[in-house]
Design a protein around this nucleic acid. Structure first.
Lengths: 133, 133, 133, 133
DNA sequence: GTGGTCTAGACCACG
DNA sequence: GTGGTCTAGACCACC
């Protein structure tokens, strides 16, 4: 697949969000990898380029890439661009603690949704929509 | 409904979690309120009591209660126990931005699950389980 | 003028208010005195009666009366009811620091009103309404 | 507009006041925002700087900023200075309960003024002065 | 550099 | 008894 920076600004920051910027960046890369938009070996935007595109400090982008590296999702190489880890592969089956973590995230979603006035039915519908395809 | 401190230790801290303690406390109270385990007017544990139960500083519990107060979920009054806000009511229908936020949370769940090796089918099953009843 | 407890519940508490209960009580008595509804020598409701009417602790009412006593507005006598201080009289002219305090209160009103979307014109109109008669 | 810390000590504490320090700080920021001295996006003094200027603990300033954040007046983000909320805008028209609250504040002013010997005329003059321009 | 979390502990204010 | 304010200081996280 094409490198991510052919179409710049695929990564965007939400200034209002409470999430730290480096996390927002990392999360979006994770999503690209999870959905296959980025595949093993694909190059990530250069640190400098992305930092300037987003108007953030270089260290912020670096922090995002390092976080992804510690998850073995990307490979940061000195002198050349970071790439999606060539041997990245989704585990055949999830570790039990990962299932537990996803379950707990779903509980957070449930709590959020109920408190904000959604019905369980509406939430289930939204889940079917987002979690399908 | 019975007050929350009839059965102590309903609130627990997960030392492993990256989430700050005061947030963990607040999140659990939110969940109790969302599920109806705690209802408007119900008393929360006193800050001192809960702090000693959890082995944390009083100020940590206070921070949790204040966060909840700023969300209009609990009412903290000088001299008497914090209670679930007497006029707390789930909105009849969610605000559009709240739906958007829940959707984005679901996306995070999806990304997490896929990266960790869950199939969409497994995730849908988990979602049906957690988001039902 | 008639004693205040001829018509019970002239004093009311706003449970939602951030102001402490004893202050709410004191403030309402001050208003009765300021407007002449209560005059020097008039009896205040008995501590027990008012406490039971309002559903608060006796000490709360006592705190209110003591606050008023320290302002020389009421006289609390052992064994008999509190009364509006028989020699209470509004000063002929305000002390300079009192004017300063009123001015600072007006600034607070101004800030509140502007932040909440009132125009200065609307605020002036409201002020003319409340501060007249 | 210039950031608030160009001219230090624009915020001052009144040791005499019964109001807690963090509230005094918050109130002054509110006033700057209400009058336009601080505008959306403007930086607030750093918590450390302001704490040292005022001779108070860092946590005291933090408490003030957090109070303002919960009112959506400022935006505090980890790692960068607190700023006036970029989307802060006075509501086009005040909510009815806000008008009610302002009215009740005006009643407090009225009571205070009368008890301390001001005439209604004097008070009206003071109000015209403070609430104009 | 910035703010965030947490602690221990003092002392105050409200009911 | 309850919560509120404030301190000093440690250590962490973000930019």
């Amino acid at each position: 697949m094409a490198d991510l920076d052919r179409e710049p600004a695929l990564i965007r920051l939400n200034e209002e969000s409470a999430a730290p910027k480096y996390m927002q960046i990392a999360e979006q890369v994770r999503e690209f990898v999870a959905t296959g938009k980025l595949r093993p070996g694909d190059q990530l935007p250069s640190v400098r380029q992305l930092a300037s595109d987003l108007g953030v400090n270089v260290n912020t982008v670096l922090a995002a890439y390092r976080a992804l590296e510690s998850e073995a999702i990307v490979l940061v190489r000195h002198g050349s661009r970071a790439i999606v880890h060539p041997r990245f592969k989704r585990p055949a089956r999830p570790a039990p603690e990962d299932v537990a973590q996803v379950r707990s995230l779903l509980w957070r979603v449930r709590t959020e949704a109920l408190l904000r006035g959604m019905t369980l039915e509406a939430l289930q519908g939204l889940a079917r929509e987002v979690l399908s395809e």
